[in-house]
Structure formats: C-alpha cells, structure tokens
C-alpha cells in the first residue's frame, strides 16, 4: 500500500458539478479552419459554405469533437506561460475544467487516458458554446511506474439555444 492521494480534500470534489460555463467567444470560422487543417480532415461541412447551406446542417459546422477544445483563456485570466520559468511546471494547471475546482494531487505528470463520446449535433459557425462538467470519479491504482490517480470527468456541451451537441466522459491520469 503506497501513498493515499485520495485525501478528504480530493474526495470532497468527487461529484462536484459546474454551472454551465460559456466559452469566451463563439465558434469562429478561422478557428475551425486551423482545427481541420491540424487534423488533416478536409470535409466540406467545415469550409464550403455553398455546399453546407444545402446540407443537413444548414450551414458551416465545426468538427464533431471541436467543442471539447473550444474553451479558451479569457483575456484577463492569468497567463499559464508566466510559470514556464519553473522547470517542473508541465504547462498545465490542475484546474481540469473551467467550472470545476482543481484536483490537488501532488503528482507532476498528466496524461490523457481516453474519451467516450455521444454526438447529437455539430456546433455551427457563430454559435456560442456552453459546457456543464462533473467529476464522476477520482480514484487511484498501482501501476508499473507507481501509483496513478484517475480523474473521470463528464461534460455536456450545448449551444446558445440550449440544444445538446455532445456528451463526453474523459479520463485524465496523474502519475
């Protein structure tokens, strides 16, 4: 039995649920373009306005899982690069979702364990995005490289008309 990372403070945030948090800006065509360039997905629904108008989407949309990465740092929020002088800083903070409290576990390495998605509709260009998040579970397991802490987060993304876009369950691993 190694260290217990699931302290009372950590246990206290299991089940914590955020209010819907609005992304700082609406879905931008140029942001969508950078996304589908970077993922090398040339589907017309992201960029061909004439085609998209006639399609089932009724206009240009973003890639299916786009909303999961569309919550950007507001201009007045602290700059994460300010901490880059610290050689142990990994470039991320432990606030894993905008509306949820941080998970205070003294493990420095963070890995993305995987995703579970359910899709309902794609975000339209110009739409505002909202996310409601919940810590579904936080637990530890012993692995080859020592004890790892698994943080399981459920997110429900919706648009400004309250229409659901997608549901995700994301597992983050601290080790």
């Amino acid at each position: 039995m190694g260290v217990n990372y699931i302290t009372d403070e950590v246990k206290a945030v299991i089940g914590a649920e955020s209010e819907p948090v609005e992304a700082f800006h609406p879905v931008e065509p140029s942001e969508v373009r950078r996304f589908h360039h970077a993922t090398m997905d040339p589907a017309r629904r992201y960029w061909d306005a004439e085609w998209a108008k006639q399609s089932r989407y009724g206009g240009l949309v973003a890639p299916p899982a786009f909303p999961a990465h569309a919550f950007r740092r507001p201009p007045a929020a602290p700059d994460p690069l300010d901490q880059m002088g610290d050689p142990d800083f990994d470039g991320r903070n432990r606030r894993m979702r905008p509306g949820l409290p941080p998970v205070e576990v003294p493990l420095v390495r963070l890995l993305n364990g995987g995703y579970d998605y359910e899709f309902f509709r794609y975000a339209r260009h110009g739409e505002r995005l909202f996310v409601k998040s919940r810590f579904k579970d936080i637990y530890q397991r012993d692995g080859k490289s020592g004890t790892m802490v698994f943080v399981v987060i459920e997110d429900l993304y919706s648009n400004d008309r309250g229409e659901p876009l997608l549901k995700t369950t994301n597992t983050l691993i601290l080790r």
């Binding site: 970077a38 890639p63 993305n112 359910e118």
Partner: peptide
Amino acid sequence: WKQHVMVQLLTDWVGETGWLWKISFQF
C-alpha cells in the same frame, strides 16, 4: 489530436447520410 482522427475514420465512412453516434477509446 488522435481522438479527431478516430472520429474522422467513422465520419468519412458513414458519410452525410449516416451518423457517428458513439465512440470510445483509450490512449
């Protein structure tokens, strides 16, 4: 990034008449 590739695998296959409903994967 890999998750979008997994999504694209299916959205390319089902085209504009099918729907990728659920997808789940572990890194």
